[in-house]
Every structure is written in structure tokens, then in C-alpha cells.
């Protein structure tokens, strides 16, 4: 676990910065809620949108506590912010170091490559976990004073699914980047997949033939069971966790047996 510690201590300042920024963003969104709660015009805007857009933006209800948090936080913005972190870290951790030519020195140590890979993956998971917790704190703190009164269990369930969703996509970014030594390739492949699957997920309600491929979108496993309303989905969590684990193993397998670029 020495590499995990080294990774986290290198990123300490950045992790603190990200956590504060995310907490501040969530606090702001929550603090605005009381002034939106009774405002029908916001609902009217969302109701006027086509169904696909509603699906993408988190539904047509923007003024109930659950609807507000879905549309303003969880449907897009908050996972997108976490994804920026996950993509950057995952592509940067091995392939990025390789491109900067610092990886040789790190791996000149008596450390098995597969273990280095797993410790680096774990460090990313811990970072994502910290940011997820940071997003929860203002919700807990302002839950009742902002008039949201959402069950703590559901908030945790929603955040858990968001964390696993970002982790799975991060692990596949790391896998493609590390397997090839090309930072940009992992980013391009996984960001492309994430965006395309977001559109498919949104359009599936309108374009019927897309429904068959919805299970292949990570968004379905993140959002469809509406954890904020219905509580955490165990099946959803397991699918996302399995996707993350398979991604990590695939990347590790390739990284363990390829040449490092000079």
C-alpha cells in the first residue's frame, strides 16, 4: 500500500481543492432551493422540453426536492464534474507519467507491475470516494434548513451509484490508456462512449430500437432506478462495480506484459 500512500500524498493539494470546489458547488445549488421551491415557471420550462431532453436532464419536475436535485445536480452536472476528475486521473496515472517520462523511475523499484497498477487504481478510487463524500456533506448539513428533507439513506444511495458510475468509467479510461501507453486514446475512447451512451439513454424513450442497447449504457445503471426517490439499487451497484473491476483487470493484464515507452 506504499504506492497508494505516495499517490495520495502527491495529490493532496489537488484533492483538497477538488473537494472544496465540489462541496461549494453543491452547497450553492442546495441554498438556492428555497427560492425555487414554489416557482412553477421552472417546471413549465422543463415540461416544455421534448421527452428525450427531459430524460437527459433528469425529468420534468424541477421544483419538488427530489426533482430539483435530480435536474440540478445528479442527472448531469455533478457526475460530469466527477467524471472530469476520474478521466483526468485515470488517463494520467500511468500513460500520462509515461508520456512525461517519469514512469521508468517509479517502476525501477521492487514493485510488481500488476501491483503498481492496482495500487494506482485504488488511489483513484479513494480520490473519487473523497470527492463523493465532499458532495454529500453540504446536502446533509442543509437538508432540512433548505427544506429538502430527503432521506439520508437515499442521498447515500444516489451518491454511491454516482461514485460507482464514475469509477467504472475511470477504470476503463485507465485500462485503455495504460494498455496502450497513450493517454489521449483512453480519454477519446471512453469520453466518446460516455457521451454517445448519454445520448442513446436520453433518446431511447423516443426511438424505440435504441431500447435494446440501453443496458450497455452506464447511465442506465446510474440513473434509471432513481435512487434519490427509491433508494440504492443493489443490482445497479453490482453491475457498475463489476464493470469497474473488469476494466481494472483488463488494463492490468495488458500493462503487465507490454513494453514501457522510453
Amino acid at each position: 500500500m506504499k504506492l497508494v500512500r505516495s499517490e495520495l500524498s502527491l495529490q493532496r493539494a489537488s484533492l483538497i481543492g477538488w473537494s472544496l470546489a465540489i462541496a461549494a458547488f453543491v452547497a450553492l445549488v442546495v441554498a438556492v432551493y428555497p427560492s425555487v421551491a414554489g416557482d412553477d415557471s421552472l417546471d413549465a420550462i422543463y415540461e416544455g422540453l421534448p421527452p428525450a431532453a427531459q430524460q437527459l436532464l433528469g425529468g420534468s419536475d424541477a421544483t419538488s426536492p427530489v426533482g430539483y436535485l435530480n435536474t440540478q445536480l445528479y442527472a448531469f452536472l455533478l457526475p460530469a464534474i466527477l467524471l472530469v476528475f476520474a478521466f483526468g486521473r485515470s488517463a494520467g496515472t500511468i500513460a500520462g507519467e509515461e508520456e512525461q517520462r517519469t514512469l521508468d523511475l517509479l517502476l525501477a523499484q521492487p514493485l510488481a507491475r500488476w501491483l503498481a497498477y492496482m495500487e494506482k487504481a485504488l488511489a483513484i478510487a479513494i480520490g473519487l470516494f473523497l470527492l463523493s463524500v465532499a458532495s454529500l456533506i453540504p446536502l446533509f448539513a442543509l437538508n432540512s434548513s433548505a427544506g429538502l428533507d430527503i432521506s439520508v439513506a437515499n442521498l447515500i444511495g444516489q451518491t454511491t451509484q454516482m461514485f460507482l458510475f464514475c469509477l467504472a468509467l475511470g477504470m476503463w479510461t485507465m485500462a485503455v490508456s495504460s494498455a496502450t501507453g497513450k493517454r489521449g486514446l483512453g480519454l477519446a475512447v471512453v469520453i466518446g462512449y460516455t457521451v454517445a451512451s448519454y445520448l442513446i439513454y436520453g433518446l431511447a424513450g423516443t426511438v424505440s430500437w435504441l431500447e435494446n442497447i440501453v443496458p450497455a449504457t452506464p447511465w442506465r445503471w446510474y440513473a434509471e432506478n432513481q435512487p434519490l426517490q427509491n433508494g440504492v439499487g443493489v443490482e445497479e451497484c453490482l453491475v457498475l462495480l463489476a464493470a469497474a473491476a473488469v476494466g481494472a483487470l483488463v488494463g492490468m493484464w495488458f500493462f503487465n506484459r507490454r513494453d514501457l515507452h522510453a
Binding site: Q100, R101, T102, D104, L105, A108, P110, L111, A112, R113
Partner: peptide, 19 residues
């Protein structure tokens, strides 16, 4: 046995780059 080899060795890279 790369780990054992690296346990007994140290390395100076041709181009020394660290953060």
C-alpha cells in the same frame, strides 16, 4: 523474476524527469 531483480538494483534513467 523482475521484482527480485529490481529489489537488488537501482537505476538512473537516460533522461531524468520527475514532477
Amino acid at each position: 523474476d523482475p521484482v527480485e531483480v529490481r529489489r537488488r538494483s537501482t537505476y538512473l534513467p537516460g533522461e531524468f524527469v520527475v514532477p
